[in-house]
């Protein structure tokens, strides 16, 4: 016997209104306030760290009082000499050019290997030994081998960088592919999105945080490898100049070059990489305000 059913009223009361302001462009904060917030949140902490480091160095240099640990003033004077007399910009430009070319090649290799390996377990197992081997081989080995193989020309630093950096980038690319939401891949399949549209609108944006993290790691590794290649096999670049200062036992000169190039890499990180990061994640800020 069926149980009595409740009486349900189904009067239509669907006069829903849409909040027109929701999702619309928010009121923009003033440019000055945005800059103040950026300076406070992004530039002040690293500036304080660097200031602390400089103070610590100054204290140690004063306490030890040796030419092996030059004072901040001596390093600053060396920096001035390098910038004025040593064509610092030319050497830095050459080193950066090699880094950019090497990293671009490494980036392409990592995508070519990382995307299929991230999607296919068999391919990942196939490439895994190469990646592990690549991660464990020191940059010094690539530097020596490439100078032996290619001699003193532009190929040595570029290939050495690509070999030294691509394993770490590939690991990031594989993680990025794994992080792509499978339900979106299904959606793209059902709506028959073209391969180009899938790459541009689905794969790259979803992988972007991992790729950016890879670029950061790659740049820091690249700096370590390029110096070695330039020391062993080049007659120009920051590594070559560092070696010259080392040969003449000029510790302040070595530190000055390090600080100058560190500054350039800092500008790349805070100016370029973080700018790209802000640009590709602006949708998140616009969506959550």
């Amino acid at each position: 016997m069926k149980s009595p059913r409740p009486v349900i009223s189904t009067k239509p009361t669907y006069k829903g209104t849409v909040n027109a302001s929701k999702g619309a462009a928010p009121e923009r904060p003033s440019l000055l306030r945005s800059w103040q917030r950026y300076l406070r949140a992004s530039l002040l902490p690293p500036a304080l760290f660097l200031l602390g480091l400089a103070l610590l160095w100054a204290l140690m240099a004063r306490m030890m009082h040796t030419t092996l640990m030059p004072s901040l003033r001596e390093i600053a004077l060396e920096m001035k000499r390098i910038i004025v007399n040593e064509d610092a910009l030319g050497h830095i430009g050459l080193t950066l050019e090699r880094i950019v070319l090497g990293c671009a090649l490494a980036f392409l290799i990592s995508l070519a290997v990382g995307i299929p390996a991230g999607r296919n377990r068999w391919l990942e197992a196939f490439f895994r030994p190469g990646i592990v081997l690549g991660l464990t081989i020191p940059g010094l080995v690539w530097a020596l081998l490439c100078v032996i193989w290619f001699g003193v020309n532009w190929k040595s630093p570029v290939v050495a960088l690509a070999l030294g950096v691509s394993p770490a980038l590939t690991v990031n690319a594989i993680q990025g592919v794994r992080a792509v939401d499978y339900s979106l891949i299904e959606m793209a399949h059902v709506f028959r999105l073209s391969p180009t549209a899938r790459l541009r609108h689905l794969w790259f944006p979803a992988m972007a945080p991992f790729l950016l993290s890879g670029v950061r790691t790659g740049l820091s590794l690249a700096w370590k490898v390029i110096v070695l290649v330039e020391i062993f096999g080049m007659s120009s670049g920051v590594g070559y100049e560092l070696n010259q200062e080392f040969s003449s036992q000029n510790v302040a000169g070595v530190l000055a070059w390090t600080v100058i190039f560190g500054g350039v890499m800092g500008v790349i990180e805070y100016g370029l990489i973080q700018g790209i990061e802000r640009n590709i994640t602006r949708w998140r800020r616009r969506a959550t305000v």
Binding site: V18, A20, A24, R286, A287, T288
Partner: peptide, 18 residues
């Protein structure tokens, strides 16, 4: 679907129903 005003909005800024 009465969502013309939201053409420039990002999905995360919309409700589940929207």
């Amino acid at each position: 679907v009465q969502m013309s005003d939201h053409a420039d909005a990002y999905p995360l800024s919309l409700s589940g129903g929207e």
